[in-house]
Amino acid sequence: MPTATFKIQRGDASIGTFEDYSLEISEGMVVLDAILLIQAKYANDLAVRWNCKAGHCGSCSAEVNGIPKLMCMCRMNELPIDKPVLVQPIKAFPLIKDLVTDVSWNFEVKKKIKKFKPRKPDAADGSWRMAQEDIDRVQEFRKCIECFLCQDVCHVLREHHLHERFTGPRYFVHVASLEMHPLDVEDRREDLKKTDGIGFCNITKCCTNVCPQEITITDNAIIPLKERIADKYYDPLKKLFRLFRSRKRNS
């Protein structure tokens, strides 16, 4: 069996080092297998998050050779093993230790988004009627496993650190799933523009490219949301109308 060397980032924010570990690679192995083997054999205290090991839970996000990935879905045979495999934590959030970062900001952001608010039920038993065609696009957004790889790769967060003014692609997908939900009657456009900072997104599609669930984040979620905001705030006719109305009110 071939052997690979893994260069794994160790330590916390104060002492960042890389350590090398060598391991035999067996058939079908994924990067997470290697990390867990290294943990069991050589480094019991190697910090890493994982749960389902099948791409369903979104826990084992990391950067493998610099690319944000779920380690459980990253096959070793996709990587060149003639040079060391570089494994690092995701970058957009503060490092806790080794491959684990503090992603709690994401959970706080979500709480600020207006919650789902359904219209009145269609039937006496409290249920609704919806056509499959009408929910297909929202079901795409609801595939999200909250791995935060899209957040990690988004330059607004990663390079510019605008965490205070920008909620990131994950939460645009979340808002899209609410705004386009056939039953929802809430309006989140003002928040999107003012507090969520959707204007900072300049649609480079980096988020779409890394999404392990293959959600077309930019085209299907972010651009339609931007269009809705444009409709509300930048439609020239509506703008004139609003101007006219406010003058009348002031006079």
Binding site: P118, P121, G126, I135, L183
Partner: peptide, 19 residues
């Protein structure tokens, strides 16, 4: 199950729009 729908869950639908 209906409670989940009231909280936003989107189950696959029948031809007549039910769960």
């Amino acid at each position: 199950v209906r409670e989940l729908e009231a909280w936003g869950a989107l189950f696959d639908r029948t031809e007549d729009g039910k769960i």
